[in-house]
Design a binder for these strands. Sequence first.
DNA 1: AGCGTAAATGTAACCGGTTACATTCGCCAC
DNA 2: GTGGCGAATGTAACCGGTTACATTTACGCT
Lengths: 332, 332
Amino acid sequence: MSSPSRPPKIHDVAKRAGVSVATVSRVFSNPDIVSEKSRKAVEKAVVETGYTLNVLGRNLRQSQVGAVLALVPNLANPFFSEILAGISEVLRDAGLNLLVLDTRQVDRDSPTHGLRNYLNRSHADGIIVLDGSLDPELFRSPACPPVVQACEWSEGVPGAKVLADNAEGARLAVQHLLDHGHRRILHLAGPRQNSLSVSRAEGVGAALSAKGLAPVATIEGAFTLRSGREAAAEVIEAAPTAVFCDNDEMAIGLMAGLTEAGLQVPEDISLVGFDNIEMAAYAPVPLTTVRQRRAVLGQEAARLLLSQRDGEQPETRVLPVELCLRRSVRAI
Amino acid sequence: MSSPSRPPKIHDVAKRAGVSVATVSRVFSNPDIVSEKSRKAVEKAVVETGYTLNVLGRNLRQSQVGAVLALVPNLANPFFSEILAGISEVLRDAGLNLLVLDTRQVDRDSPTHGLRNYLNRSHADGIIVLDGSLDPELFRSPACPPVVQACEWSEGVPGAKVLADNAEGARLAVQHLLDHGHRRILHLAGPRQNSLSVSRAEGVGAALSAKGLAPVATIEGAFTLRSGREAAAEVIEAAPTAVFCDNDEMAIGLMAGLTEAGLQVPEDISLVGFDNIEMAAYAPVPLTTVRQRRAVLGQEAARLLLSQRDGEQPETRVLPVELCLRRSVRAI
DNA sequence: AGCGTAAATGTAACCGGTTACATTCGCCAC
DNA sequence: GTGGCGAATGTAACCGGTTACATTTACGCT
């Protein structure tokens, strides 16, 4: 206790409690199989010695790391951090730590420092991928721990998937515009190859084609405020009466761009976003949008990973979305 | 290579390369001291066997974890995630992983699942604390790895600190309002005991008292959009001509609240925020604010941690801030 | 050739737990 | 008393690397 010499090891505790190291170990990992008497003795000795378990030893023996790796395209993006919060919550309850890696920050292909090095059983017990732009081949090695894709995804990655019902969300949004009499609808999309853009475009198409319509234009953005603002000129040129944006940030950016150009939302142009980020309600004009429960998405991803780790079959889970009505759409 | 039996170990590589395990190990950890010939042989054998180093074994032997823990008050808050991005960047270059823990999510005092369990050398090689509300006692145990506080802080925690020049930022902001003729200035502050609130209040006091003034009122908020909006009524009652807000989110929230109440920014009330979050430029009225470089703050925190780990003295670093002029302030 | 020194390599202990397997203990039935 | 059985415990091997220390090798110098 008072000796500052070296941290007590399991052996010291055992000696003090008058039992073997195995018994001490069992008190930690499987208390039920040790007798009341020894358990008390060990617990007392633990307190007296100030023993804390060294996780490294355990991990080595059990060949597990005690941590799950999340691969995020951009850590600074609030959209992802809320998903992370959900992941973190579930992992913590399972006694696992959360490792975070920003995929923008790593040299993707370097053999020594690249992503490949991380995808190894000795680095993490599982991986949650929030980045749909990674090479699926990375995750196919037999040394790769269980993988779950969340939110974005790419084909060819083994393992479970959890995603919001992107197509349905987009359909809902566009249907809402149609219901308000809009016919000239523009789609401000994300990057072309992005899986989110693709399925949202599907939803847009579905809603419009049911009425025999098509988007007056599709503009490719980058999911950022800036790219929304920069799209304003092109949007104005296409002269839609309403714009469906693939995320709220582009919608808010576009709102700023339109305002600067002297147009009013929703009087001149109606706007619908996607995600329902917190700021959507505080935008210059409170933004009508599709709500996607990001924390739940993260939680679900973590749960799927845990069940996959326990040997269950990977599955794909689609989370419902809902329309969130505010003031950026008006009837015409 | 083709045998799917069991992953190759260092021993297999050694045998194949015709050298000892020590030599193989040295090729990984200290290539310079092994001869060109053996090095080539080992590298060849590594490729042939498909060997990947098992980090667990190394970690155990070296008593290090290879990861740094970041303690965040709220993972979902973009403010923190940008700091995390900075931290992550520096750590990655140093070959360390980033572990993230949301302090809201953990039972602070539980002896078995609480925070205390994490603060142990075998869990992380270092800790970066972004939460100023934690009990300093937690970090005083001899088993606790090096600690750096970033952004928020509390007295009594050992180790380095890195923070923005909060007092100066607040002083700058208020001075800016004074320069524009404002005299009735209100301070929409953060939680009373928060270290940021305290030092920003100092800056506000310094600027005002130099002119023989004091805030017309100080309102305690919670750094959230909502708390900003909710403060609107109380603000209006105090009838200031300008408000300095302890962060941008409260400022944007307040802006919404004021607008709802029929007041115009900046015609009726001028507003200054703090942080310069990305959304500040896209607020209904682009927000004049104090810019704080969050990514740099994170990088600096990580660097301080690394140097502390290498035995250097902990130091306190204050990062400069600057005023970011937009349209939410007008002269009277 | 003989010697000294530095560089390269090998052997085996070690990091700190877990756990397979062996052993002991306690208790009951015959 | 003895055999049988399950529960509790102990012993020691094991996880997969690193590294102190011993040993060998290479090479320059007298």
